[in-house]
Design a binder for these strands. Sequence first.
DNA 1: TTGTAAGCGTTATCAC
DNA 2: GTGATAACGCTTACAA
Lengths: 359, 359
Amino acid sequence: MPKSDPTRPVTTHDVARRAGVSQATVSLVLSGNPRARVAAATRERVMEVAEELGYRPNILARGLVRGRSYALGVVVPDLTNPFFLDVVTGAQRVASEAGYAVLPGDTRESTPARHLEALRARQVDGVIIDGVGAATLPHDSLSDLKVVVVDEPSERWPGVASDALAAGRLAAEHLLGLGHRRVAFIGPATDVHSFRMRERGFFQALRDGGVGLPHEWLRRVPPSVGGGQRGMKALLAGERPTAVFCANDLIAMGALKAALTAGVNVPRELSIVGCDDVEMASVVTPELTTIAVPARELGARAARLLLRQLAGEEVPARPGKLLPVRLVRRATTAEPQGTGDGEQGTAGTDAPASPPSGT
Amino acid sequence: MPKSDPTRPVTTHDVARRAGVSQATVSLVLSGNPRARVAAATRERVMEVAEELGYRPNILARGLVRGRSYALGVVVPDLTNPFFLDVVTGAQRVASEAGYAVLPGDTRESTPARHLEALRARQVDGVIIDGVGAATLPHDSLSDLKVVVVDEPSERWPGVASDALAAGRLAAEHLLGLGHRRVAFIGPATDVHSFRMRERGFFQALRDGGVGLPHEWLRRVPPSVGGGQRGMKALLAGERPTAVFCANDLIAMGALKAALTAGVNVPRELSIVGCDDVEMASVVTPELTTIAVPARELGARAARLLLRQLAGEEVPARPGKLLPVRLVRRATTAEPQGTGDGEQGTAGTDAPASPPSGT
DNA sequence: TTGTAAGCGTTATCAC
DNA sequence: GTGATAACGCTTACAA
């Protein structure tokens, strides 16, 4: 008989009454308190009755007295971006194993600050912040809150990050290695650290390879499919590059779409490199060459870091080692073909013709 | 001075003390109780102090006494599927407007029952269930829990659903209208209602059109990109159909991928129709013809239904009107070309080579 | 109009 | 070992 009451959930009192012991004893037994010294017989009896009555602890009540909610917040800019969803999923996995719930939220129709407000009203024990520029948040919106930042170095909070600089470099080196000298970049104007670093790494490696990039080839768009399409359209309207690096896969897929729509042969006439390696990257045709970033792992580690802090451990506010990224060569990159409308190299290897351009 | 205490959150007691009133009065003022008759001056003073101290109500404590957690659970099979994510997002929007939090969870690495267990431990006030066959769940895992089902008719719970039967019909009619007679289906073997209905609608309309379908053209695969690829590979290995309807867009994109990889010209040699109209459907090339299903709207309505129940309203356990779906014609469908390897019609209209097609 | 007091379901500190 | 008892922060009669 799993139940008998009208509909009210079973409490420790119910169990106590039925088992003929005090409510406190029931709590002692059921709360899994390690140093609960209860007679084996009593414990047995209590557990039995609890089972029989279908008792489930009320986590809220427990949280109230322990000053914990056993819930974590995760704030990302856009859950619709599979990358961030993976971060959330990764966090969710380790959190739920530890008995914590995850309250995900994105800032598409709200501000991060507003979101954090709601989270602290729910007494979340901590939050994971990714991609919303934690450093730029209203200072007190994170005060007295355990925080872990993802992909954003900070001397205020601990965090985990991927090697975004390397991601950019990898993209550039891949393109350079293929022989490209006329390369463009599509990415957001943002203060989100990982985007900036991807961009920086890309330009650094380009410069190291003696390649510069004119202003028209640096397109600022939102980090979305639509942004990518817009960026690519703009690029195609002018003097065309032979390769483009996009700050994330959403942009890259949008760019690819726009290129294909315009009748551009990818990768023959134009190479495209994305970043993140979301699932869809290998579903579009041609398959997207991209830089794989371990999103789930980032989320999982962030959660672990947070959990450790909640366990009382002092976690230093230094980001640990950067998680490695890697180039995934697929089908949107190839050697540039002499497309006939002139070459443009700045130095380095061969490629004469057209004059060099500044950074 | 936003704060002054060490780090402990501000409580109603703190506010009361500082404002020189009783804690109860503070609660009266701050809980927004409509019938709280408090002197304007007092109210003013309390609000002032609360603001000054940075008071935030503890939702958990409130929930404990009110017997509410102000949290909703949403259970879907796979958050990675943009369709379900949209359902969640839609629910989230209306829930958060009403001050409710949403605890999303999928059943990829867990069972629905297990998930519901965790949700009720958190005292969620209700759950929205989509795509996991609520009817097949262990009977007591939903007992004494407010439930709204999405895309699943039930005489036990209220729900919202899209017109899945029409979705299937629309797909079939579109294909039939184009002149296809050799059509296949790729979908999951499942007891999820909407999948079954899409399938049924498809076959009904086919039959109405006088078209039958041999066993080899009914491929059972998981409702994922990988499943779609597998299904299409199998299809291509045998006698080929001229068109395929896939039970969802993930499958369709996988199928498209596999077809393209095999060098099949889509839609020239093979038409593909998906279902859901996820964002990526219009990003792949060629763009996917699909049946649009209002995912966010489903989620939003489900949440509203749940909220109404929580407000005490008696919501009948009958699904309301089915939300309309519509065909989105894009680039993966076209009239069948005489591909040379023989025709196979079961009856019906004519449609020889390439006659005009309907709108 | 405002304060007192009794919980909500748990945990945790004591005496017994 | 076990059972009172006091919180946790809040809401809500009911009394003043």
